[in-house]
């Protein structure tokens, strides 16, 4: 008998092993059961249902009617609008991921080294994260970047050099709408990833910097390149992963900035797959094809994640 068990027998009368176990099981399911039920009902069953649906004809109905095999998938890849949307989102991801990464890392370094008022700056940069994508999109579209002479951006251009008003959202050439779409996402996301980088920065032991200092390293570029950045590798890899997933799931700002009332509007300028699939499912009411598209996007995200894991070694230990 170990000391531990001795103490326990002394404190309470020994319950029989099996009844203890049963009670534990009941408690486990009481706490976990509702969560599992919720996950099943709202996540796993819908996913499975969607998967089944993607092989059926389902127009104006989410009940599978007629088995059509791969027809929904073939139709999807036969639709130039879907292929365009894939191209759009890939270009968007290739651009937005490194830019957000660099910006949030830069902000984190600045805030971390601010010395005074770190908390204040951290809060200021983090606040946009709490704003909804829809609200921010509408502010960007109707106030900052509207096409009227009275718009904020147009006012500034006029003040600088009497530049004529620009229709930011609706000008295809040059594609000013990307400026609107990219800035709103940067504003919304950078603060959040800055916090993650800050946490990563604070994990780095000071002693390493001190040791480097003793060896004659200069603070600044040298320590960043040889200490800070390598020590942030796990943080960086997870930030890139999350950024890629979010980029592929782009929807809110694209739909709210480029769509107009009762029409597809300027959507064709930059329509990510989720906006296309939303239209297919909820406007055209072709739920079979919509479900098929959702699985194509899921597969795409998985492929990118796996490839990235291989490239950067996600989950490998930091010091290896």
């Amino acid at each position: 008998m170990t000391t531990h068990e001795l103490v326990e027998t002394a404190v309470s009368p020994p319950p029989s092993r099996s009844s203890r176990k049963r009670q534990d099981t009941i408690e486990f399911w009481l706490f976990v059961g509702p969560l599992v039920l919720g996950l099943l009902a709202f996540v796993y069953i819908p996913i499975l249902w969607g998967f089944v649906l993607s092989f059926f004809r389902a127009r104006n109905s989410v009940t599978p009617t007629e088995f059509v095999g791969l027809e929904n998938y073939l139709e999807l890849f036969g639709d130039p609008r879907f292929l365009d949307s894939l191209q759009t989102v890939i270009i968007f991801a290739i651009f937005i991921v490194p830019v957000t990464f660099a910006l949030s890392l830069g902000l984190a370094l600045l805030v971390n080294n601010a010395g005074v008022n770190t908390g204040l700056f951290r809060t200021i940069f983090f606040i946009p994260t709490a704003c909804s994508y829809v609200v921010a999109s509408l502010v960007w579209k109707t106030s900052l970047f509207n096409g009227l002479p009275s718009g904020f951006a147009n006012n500034i251009l006029w003040a600088i050099n009497e530049i004529n008003p620009i229709a930011w959202v609706n000008t295809a050439d040059p594609p000013y709408y990307w400026l609107v779409l990219v800035t709103v996402r940067l504003w919304l996301q950078s603060g959040f990833y800055m916090i993650i980088f800050l946490a990563g920065l604070q994990e780095i032991p000071r002693s390493i910097y001190e040791a480097a200092m003793v060896d004659g390293a200069k603070p600044g570029r040298q320590t960043f390149r040889h200490i800070t950045f390598p020590m942030l590798r796990n943080t960086s890899v997870s930030v890139i992963l999350l950024l890629f997933i979010e980029a592929f799931q782009a929807f809110d700002e694209f739909r709210n900035i480029l769509a107009t009332g009762g029409s597809s509007g300027a959507q064709i300028l930059a329509r990510p797959p989720l906006v296309y699939l939303y239209n297919v499912a909820f406007q055209d009411q072709n739920y079979g094809r919509g479900a098929a598209g959702a699985f194509v996007i899921a597969a795409l995200i998985m492929v990118v994640t796996v490839v990235q894991g291989r490239l950067f070694g996600f989950g490998r230990r930091e010091h290896q």
Partner: peptide, 10 residues
């Protein structure tokens, strides 16, 4: 003709 410059279905 709206901000899409006239592609609304109506």
């Amino acid at each position: 003709l709206s901000n899409d410059m006239g592609s609304t279905s109506y």
